[in-house]
Structure formats: C-alpha cells, structure tokens
Simulated assay, not measured.
Amino acid sequence: MAEPLKNMYNAAFFEKLCPILRRTIPQFDCRDFTYRVFNNSWPDLELKERVRHITLALHHFLPKDFNTAAILLVELSRQLRKNDVREQGFETIFIPDYIHVYGEAHPEASLAAIEEITKLVSAEFAIRPFLLRYPDITLRKMTDWSKHTDANVRRLASEGCRPRLPWAMGIPALKKDPSAILPILENLKADPSEYVRRSVANNLNDIAKDHPQLVLKIVKRWQGTSPDTDWIIKHGCRTLLKKGDVHALNLHGFNPNSRSEVLAFTLPKTKVKIGDSLDFTFDFVNHEKKATSFRLEYAIDYLTSTGKTSRKIFKITETDFVPGKPVNIRRKQSFKNFTTRKHFKGKHHLTILANGKKLAAKEFMVF
C-alpha cells in the first residue's frame, strides 16, 4: 500500500526547510517552529489540514504587517528554488496558502507575491479568494500573466480561473459567465509549454460543462491553428465527446451516423466480486465502404449507495477502421475499491459505444 501523501511532511522535510526559513525570516526559531508543527494534534491531521497547520505555525514567526510578510515569503520562495527544492511539487503549498489566509485584505501585495511564489509552487488555490472579492483587478492581472515569460506564471493565469477547479473554492460568476476568461485562453492557445496547454484544455473542458455551445464556437475558430492548439481543443472537448455530443464528434472527425456493428460480445463472468475484475471481449466491424474514423468507448452504469446508477465512460481507441474486417477488442475493468470510487453490490450495465452511439449492452452483477 502506498504511503499517505500527508507523510511527506516528516522530520527530514523540516530539517531541510528550517535552515532556509532561518536565513530568510529574522528571528526565526527552528526549534520552536518544529514544536508548533509537531504538536499533539499533528498525528490526526489529514493532508490539507497539515498544510493549514504549517501555515498557522509559520504565521507566529512572520511580521504581523502583511506587506512585509509577503516580501519575506517571496524571498523564501526564491531561496527554496535556489536550494533545489522541487519546483511545482506539493510540499511548499503552505507558502501560497499563507497568502490565501492572511492576504485577502491586501490585494496589491498579495497578487505581486503570488506572481513570484507560483514559480516555485502553483498558487491556483490562493488566487481564488481574490477572484471572488476583487474580480476585475484580479482578472486584469491574470490576463497580464498570460503573456508572462515564465511558464509557471502563464499556467496560473489559466489554471487559477478554471470555473470548476477541483478541490478549490468555487467562483460562481465565472461558472455563470466565463467571458472574462476567454482573453486569457486566447493568449495561451498556442503556448510553447505543454504544462500551460494542458491547463488551457482543462479550462475549456470546465467551461464546456456549463456552456457547450461557447466551447464549440471556440473549437471552430481555433481548429487548424497548429497541432498543439488542435490537441488543446480535442482535450478540452473530452466531456462533450464522452457525452456523445453530435457537434463535438463531427468537429473532431467522428461521424455519429457512420455504420458499424459489435459482434461476439462476451462476458466470461456475469458476476464480479468487489475487488476482482470484469473481463469482456467483442469484435468491432466498420460497415462503411471506406476506412472510417471511430471513437470506441465502453460505459459502465455503476450502482450508487442510493440505488441509482452513475455512468462512467472509458475510451478504448480512436482510429481508422478498414471496412468489413472484424477487429477483436479485449478489456479488463477493475472493481477494486478506491478512495475516489466505492463499489456497491447489485445489477450493473456495460455498454459499447462507437462515435457516441450505443451498439451493444450486457448486464452483470457485482457482489
């Protein structure tokens, strides 16, 4: 079993961190700091709670004047980068978290600090309170960041304003009307950094969940700009493609009306024990007269704790199939419980999809 991520905050981590804190923050006391971190509550804290706990412990040693504290945090982030602390790792997330907790009343100093700190560790969560309280000035700053020379700052411009950023504070106004985000994405649609391009794609995918027609218009305008931009719009349409959106499928070369068939669809076992795997196989045949692009997927309708079902779609392949020649497909789906998915006993459904169209389905039981 993998060690819990929260255990990265161990004695060795603080032995490396404390000398840099001492060089950066006047009158910093390493011993007192570690006592405050490893107090009686520490063993019971989960990852996010430990991050906040470190933030609060650090506050004891930083100046109470936030503008002065922000300058020291920027210098701390620079010193950590100079000392080969892993950039864009999670370990130092407590630095932007400090801005989140204590900087909200100081937008100018906070945004200036975030611009530097995000070069060490992403400030995508720390920026959210400022988008809520100061949307205009924050979005103007993020638009400027989208033209920054540093890829980490450009990536924050996109990632920080995602309407549905996972594990982050919600921004209802951007979910309702994402138009303020679009100039940022325009500036980044052909960014040289894959790290940035992936964020742009994820932002588009977020927008598509609430405003599919807007994203489809962007796709039409961007399509063919460059291979990198084509990748962005394809990845940004992944939710629409999984939903079988006819317009998204057609824009990406998958005609929902292309004729095809599933043959010899077989489940060796129709009962699957929680913790085991479901095996299945089928033959796929293209019935068009020429080689045709198909997006093959399978969907599982999982039983939930309430007795309803929740569909999850898994991509098999996207490729051209020659006409009339059966292609055998074999897959295995795990039913092991994870923190992100718990399985429940009862009837489930497995469906094979081609270009968004249902071709075959079978029932199976989970026990």
Rank of each mutant, 00 (worst) to 15 (best):
S334T: 10
E15A: 12
T270N: 12
Q333R: 12
L296W: 05
L131H: 08
V366I: 14
P63W: 06
D29A: 02
T34S: 08
H100S: 03
R36F: 03
L350K: 14
A180T: 02
K189M: 14
I71F: 07
D191K: 06
I137G: 09
H235D: 07
G275N: 12
G236Q: 02
V327Q: 15
K147A: 11
T351Y: 15
A69W: 05
K273C: 02
C30H: 00
N202E: 06
E194V: 10
D210S: 03
A360K: 12
S260Q: 00
E186L: 04
I181L: 14
N10Y: 05
R36G: 01
R50D: 03
L132G: 07
K315F: 07
P43N: 05
H53K: 03
V196P: 09
N257H: 06
R128G: 00
A123E: 01
T317D: 15
G346Y: 11
C30N: 02
I300K: 14
A173Q: 09
S310E: 12
K312P: 10
G103D: 05
H247S: 06
G275W: 08
R78F: 08
A113K: 00
D228V: 02
A190F: 09
I274W: 14
A299P: 09
F335A: 11
S41N: 08
G253F: 05
D32L: 02
V262Y: 08
E46P: 02
L240Y: 13
R198L: 11
E116T: 01
